[in-house]
Amino acid sequence: MHSDEQKKVVEIRGLKKSFDENHVLRGVDLDLYKSENLVVLGKSGSGKSVLIKLMVGLLKQDEGEINILGRNTHKLPLKELNKLRLKIGFAFQASALYDSMTVRENLEFPLTRNVKNLTRKEINAKVEGLLDSVGLPKTINQMPSELSGGQKKRIGIARTLILEPEIMLYDEPTAGLDPTTCIDINNLINQVREEYNTSSIVITHDLTCAKVTGDRMAVLIEGQFESIGTFDEVFTNASDPKIKSFYDYNFIQ
């Protein structure tokens, strides 16, 4: 568990979000501490992705507060929100690589638009270094359509790392991948934390991914966190039938 002295990088209180009559988040509280990997688990449609989209301002909450690195995202003007966004890396479920750009251009795009006065040599060094660290240096001139699902995920993560974020948000990083590639992605998530000293929220419904990458688990059921703690605290001898059924369902799957 975390002592109060440990620095909170994300603090969410009473977060509510509805889409018409569908109440997706019903008062969510969550803390993310410096350098920890927090895994948010839940079934499809439980509001996991909505939670992280609210964090980066892609959606607006109905109620509640999100404080990231000491700043209340809801009250920030766009210019300030964009400054905060530079400190948050968001790895999308489907990678969201820009189709019309090569891998190199995909990585350069956020860099050249947000960091001024970089020389071509510095840009190249940064792009090539990142591609090396995700293990895909040879893809540099390829188009996204030429990459496999796992490669796209890695490039997507590399693209978010180019701005050296303090917080990483992973949206279903292992969804749609074969077991071997899942292991690679899980290792990459841990490697990112070690190399870049990031704090991360990993959204998943994959318990293996959760166990390998997470320091703490938070299980989102019907718009609220039913249980938050280490993997063993949450799942081993879970008495809550909803969590037990989620655990059983995952391993039967």
């Binding site: 980066v56 892609l58 966004r85 530079l86 968001f90 489907a94 189709d99």
Partner: peptide, 16 residues
């Protein structure tokens, strides 16, 4: 297609 594959969201979260 950029909208439905979240490429527009990806720009937004990169402060573009």
């Amino acid at each position: 297609s950029m909208k439905v594959t979240e490429q527009i969201d990806a720009m937004e979260v990169s402060a573009i």
